[in-house]
Design a protein around this nucleic acid. Structure first.
Length: 207
DNA sequence: CTCTCGATGTTCT
DNA sequence: GAACATCGAGAGG
């Protein structure tokens, strides 16, 4: 059990904008253990605990899209903190990022541990509802939550279609490593800007 | 376990 | 045209 009988109301408190109005690396680390929640048109809800993130540090960072300049695509990352930056890679996978304070910076959410949701009881049941690795990767996560470019730039501080909750307090160790899939970024590829929960089964890969 | 490869839409050169 | 913040399947050790 991750969070036994967590019916406490504080678990579903939405993270405020001030959470994202901080240095990107701090936000990336502090997002670990938080709950990402998606509600679709028919009212059904899916929820997962964030277990892996990466920090992208703006125009200087050769791995960050905003290093290409402020374009139509990267405009969201220069906008207000707490909004979603979503884009397509390899023609088939959407990546979900959260914009932080500094212009052009964001946090990529790379993996979730699925939580089952019983909305009748308003409780989090912590057994894995299905494959615990259903959202173990940035492309798998967006597929599981039905997140696509329609949600690009949406405000995650509003409880609408997609938001982040405080979750429950847990003790875990944070592991660091180089970011995945950005080997083209020269010295920026080597920086330890990937963060994940140690020994968590839903992390996409261990260093 | 490792490696290779194909799928496929957008953005940038 | 090339490159891409990926994934899963298949071949080979």
């Amino acid at each position: 059990m991750l969070c036994p009988l967590a019916t406490l109301s504080n678990t579903s408190v939405i993270l405020p904008k001030s959470f994202y109005q901080r240095p990107t690396v701090e936000v990336a680390k502090d997002l670990l253990g938080k709950f990402l929640v998606r509600e679709v048109e028919d009212g059904s809800v899916r929820k997962g605990m964030i277990v892996e993130t990466e920090a992208y540090l703006g125009p200087e960072d050769l791995a960050c899209h905003s290093s290409k300049g402020r374009t139509e695509r990267t405009e969201v990352m220069f906008g207000p903190a707490g909004h979603a930056y979503i884009y397509l890679v390899y023609g088939m996978h959407y990546m979900f990022n959260i914009v932080t304070k500094a212009p052009g910076e964001a946090v990529l959410v790379r993996a979730l541990q699925p939580l089952s949701v019983d909305s009748e009881l308003n409780s989090e049941i912590t057994k894995a509802p299905e494959d615990p690795r259903i959202a173990a990767g940035p492309g798998k996560l967006t597929a599981w939550l039905a997140v696509d470019k329609n949600l690009n730039s949406c405000d995650l501080v509003q409880k609408d279609k997609l938001w982040v909750e405080a979750g429950c307090k847990m003790n875990f160790e944070i592991e660091k490593g180089k970011r995945i899939g950005v080997d083209y970024a020269k010295e920026w590829a080597e920086k330890p800007l990937r963060f994940y929960i140690e020994n968590n089964p839903a992390v996409s890969k261990v260093s």
